[in-house]
Design a protein around this nucleic acid. Structure first.
Lengths: 331, 331
DNA sequence: TTAGCCTAGGTAAACGTTTACCTAATGGGT
DNA sequence: ACCCATTAGGTAAACGTTTACCTAGGCTAA
């Protein structure tokens, strides 16, 4: 159906090998005339190499898989976009997979990507630790983002955010503003990225000589829906004057719940988010939050991955992104 | 490296063809023992078929490409998610491509998808009309969403939204509420999906016996940033008591600009959006908007595409989604 | 002259599957 | 005893590339 290398070869009166060499610029021993003839046929017949056949023989697809737990969370949307851009700039494409924080789906995406011959994978935090055996078996270069992950030899890099500091800054920001009872809302309580943030939250209290009331803690998921229900639960259970939300989506949900009860932000209750997603400054009450330079981490991840692909002996990169506070109008 | 069908064949003491038959359940002439032996080896060796090799020979990948103009627009995020889910339910996977409303990027994604052997493509509205020659050449089954598109024979379906009615409803809603000067903000003025909406907007005025002031029209893009700057421009230029925003992202940007100037919504200026993205009800002022059942259209698109793949003589589906008004708190 | 080296390009195997067609043995019916 | 069908599985080509190695002619330098 579509034009193949053989069609070009036939019409140029040369062998397929010659065409392949020209196409791949391994043409140091191909005559000028032949080269030109081939290129002009390529244009004329709109030849595009069949990447499938190419991948099959070269064992490389120049495609990178990106797995995220929740594409609807704007944090991951932005991350995915940054990865895609970064990859494209380096001649790679990406395939996006959405795991819904479901380890089974994640595993099935992993095998899907493997069987489709991706050269590498960016695995972004879901709540659970991935199946180490599977990763081991797949042997696909991997960069892990904000994940606990075993030290595999196909691990090209880890890009982590200093969640302890992030949560510490978040809580300290509110404590400095005079708040004494601060709610803490975060993702899956069993996931390390929640535990670590909780540690930072508690340290801020300790250093300020304040107690932490377990009644003020609600952990479950990072999406807006949980932000909404968690805040309702908290409001029913106890009282507080500020909320540390460990994602901006949570903060958005929280804000709605507060307003539902007639509380205004920040007058009745301050709210700080985490991630600094692009919507955060655009909310009617621009959201104070913790900046974590999303695009930069995407670029870093892809960069580290491709460097590793180019040269697997390349020293592993272990990056710890340092978050900062952005004060807007909700605190 | 990874286990292949030959490894299984060798260890089972049969030929590769036999293994292939069993794997593909074309095993009516394979003995029970052999079948069992093969399946147990498959488990034991963690065999996963190499999709690349498989695609090469079968000329089918069970992958669908999805091209959207702006993944950061929550409308498309939701659409993409719905497509992915729908595809997965029918045994397909998706590859997401983000075109940034750039026809060149779009074309390059199209050839990328073609060369990677996707079985079909869902092409969602960008502002511009796609390169018909390219589509013609590629001959990949296509479903077009909210796009003007030539009548190719590889066009499996069109899923369009009745934008005229949508915009009409949007404006009528505001007119009925007593507004007389209503601003209109939409995407690329040259794109049909803006022109059509503008027609609906104007019809609502005509039917109400109201004039349309061209000073109240600002068209450029569907993202929040344009919503922000367009609203600033409008506020500098003229006065109005309500805004018809042709996407919720625009409405969010508009709301911020209004607030910036000390105007409150809906008291000083009503705002209605379009799309009913999942964030819309979650904004501090839940956004009135035009519902267009995003997930449903994603499911429809994928369904139509796969039906076409299963049977290319399947009658083309041309769906026109009817939008409805959702009143919340901004009008 | 001849070994050796360019230059220009061809040959064929390989990547991991699928599939049309072949074979060989067995069994049943007449 | 012969024919035909059925069962169980094998053979080999094909998909569209890439690449290691080959060839053949011509040139150069000793």
């Amino acid at each position: 159906m579509a034009t193949t290398i053989k069609d070009i070869a036939r019409q140029a009166g040369v062998s397929a090998a010659t065409v392949s060499k020209v196409l791949n610029r391994k043409d140091h021993s191909i005559g000028e005339k032949t080269r030109e003839k081939i290129w002009s046929l390529v244009k004329e017949l709109n030849y595009t190499p069949n990447s499938i056949a190419r991948s099959l023989i070269t064992r490389s697809s120049r495609v990178i898989g990106v797995i995220v737990p929740d594409i609807l969370n704007a944090y991951f949307t932005e991350l995915v976009r940054a990865c895609d851009q970064a990859a494209r700039e380096r001649g790679y494409s990406t395939i996006l997979c959405n795991s819904d924080s479901d380890p089974e789906k994640e595993a099935s995406h992993l095998t899907f990507l493997a069987s489709h011959g991706v050269d590498g994978i960016v695995l972004a935090a879901s709540d659970l630790i991935p199946d180490a055996h599977l990763l081991e078996r797949l042997r696909i270069p991997l960069v892990s983002m904000d994940r606990e992950i075993p030290d595999l030899d196909c691990l090209a890099a880890r890009i982590d955010t200093d969640y302890e500091t992030g949560a510490f800054l978040s809580a300290s920001h509110l404590i400095r503003a005079g708040h004494r009872r601060i709610a803490f809302v975060s993702g899956n309580p069993l996931a390390s990225n929640t535990k670590i943030r909780r540690a930072g939250f508690e340290r801020a209290h300790r250093e300020a000589g304040l107690p932490v009331d377990p009644d003020l803690i609600e952990c479950g998921a990072f999406n807006h829906r949980f932000g909404l229900v968690a805040t309702r639960t908290l409001l029913d259970r106890t009282s507080f004057s500020a909320m540390c939300c460990m994602s901006d989506m949570l903060a958005m949900g929280a804000t709605v719940a507060l307003r539902e009860r007639g509380l205004s932000v920040p007058e009745d209750c301050a709210v700080i988010g985490f991630d600094n997603i692009y919507i955060a400054p655009l909310l009617v009450r621009p959201l104070s939050t913790i900046e974590r330079r999303i695009s930069e981490s995407g670029y870093l991840a892809i960069g580290a991955l491709i460097d590793f692909l180019d040269d697997p002996t390349h020293p592993r990169r272990m990056v710890l992104m340092e978050p900062t506070v952005i004060q807007r109008e909700t605190t």
